[in-house]
């Protein structure tokens, strides 16, 4: 062979700093969601009052989301609705994650009949159609905001509980946990130092990925009228109302709040995925 410059087999990939990207995504998503939640305190209730002279205006600079058939500013209404939905979703998802952690840990560590019973409950919850269960529970506890929170909290834990249980079982049967016992560590110490570092990231990511479900289902319940009461500007109610006006050409009544909902849900999704990548010492190197 001659002394030609050796061709690069694989050029070093031009890639930007991926960890920086990950942190930026996390920061932006968190900022956006916080902005939506706290926006209601900044913009106040002024836009919620009817101004009959400005009815049915399409999106403009003064009203980026347009106005509805009573002349109410759709941006204000959507933000109020989204903020309420996010807070309801946050509460419901947190409650759901707590249930999942408790049952998952119990099933994984206690084993035996406890595990059998919890697995059976998980299977039962999975076998019932999600929305039907939601409606039944929301109806049974009397509907309203309280009903939505309870229904969402009680229906969203099974998949996360299963993940937690699997994680606990895997860690428990690993050589290093067995070894930790032989090194004279107590079960409580093992749980604190071996189990928690594995389960907490799973739980955190699981919790964040639960939000979008919780919010969508909250919106769904409100949309069909057994969720949050109709005079509150929940996102589901705004969407339900807009249905009547879509056919008359007032597209912004449905599209704009819908986009906001989509963006919020997606923001949570990105947040969860990026957090997962960052928390695992293996993928955090990529």
């Amino acid at each position: 062979m001659t002394t030609l410059a050796p061709p690069q087999i694989r050029a070093p990939k031009k890639q930007s700093n991926r960890r920086q990207q990950t942190l930026w995504t996390i920061g932006l998503c968190a900022f956006f969601l916080a902005a939506v939640i706290f926006s209601t305190w900044v913009i106040g209730d002024a836009g919620l009052n009817p101004v009959l002279t400005q009815r049915n205006q399409s999106p403009s600079l003064a009203h980026p989301f347009g106005t509805d058939w009573l002349g109410r500013d759709m941006l204000t209404r959507s933000l109020h609705g989204m903020s309420l939905s996010l807070r309801v979703g946050l509460l419901a998802a947190t409650a759901s994650a707590a249930i999942a952690a408790l049952l998952g840990l119990a099933a994984g560590t206690l084993g035996g009949w406890v595990d059998a019973v919890i697995c059976w409950i998980i299977d039962v919850c999975f076998s019932l159609p999600h929305l039907v269960l939601l409606i039944l529970i929301a109806f049974a506890v009397g509907g309203g905001t309280r009903g939505v929170i309870i229904a969402v909290a009680l229906t969203h834990w099974p998949s996360l509980a299963r993940v937690v249980r699997a994680e606990v079982l895997q860690v428990n049967s690993s050589d290093y946990v067995q070894l930790s016992h032989r090194l004279g560590r107590s079960p409580a110490w093992v749980a604190r130092h071996h189990m928690v570092p594995h389960v907490v990231p799973q739980l955190l990511v699981g919790l964040i990925l639960l939000f979008p479900h919780a919010i969508l289902h909250e919106a769904a319940l409100s949309f069909i009228g057994i969720g949050i009461s109709p005079h509150l500007p929940a996102i589901g109610i705004i969407l339900a109302e807009s249905m009547r006006h879509l056919s008359t050409g007032y597209w912004w009544l449905g599209v704009m709040p819908g986009l906001l909902l989509l963006l919020s849900v997606k923001a949570f999704d990105w947040l969860g995925e990026n957090l997962r990548a960052l928390l695992d010492p293996r993928t955090s190197q990529g």
Binding site: P6, I9, R10, A11, Q15, Q285, G286
Partner: peptide, 18 residues
């Protein structure tokens, strides 16, 4: 993904590209 490869690898006289 985060690996960069230099030098030459020839298989049957032809360079091994990705």
């Amino acid at each position: 993904e985060n690996a960069a490869v230099g030098g030459t690898m020839l298989f049957h006289g032809q360079p091994l590209t990705p």
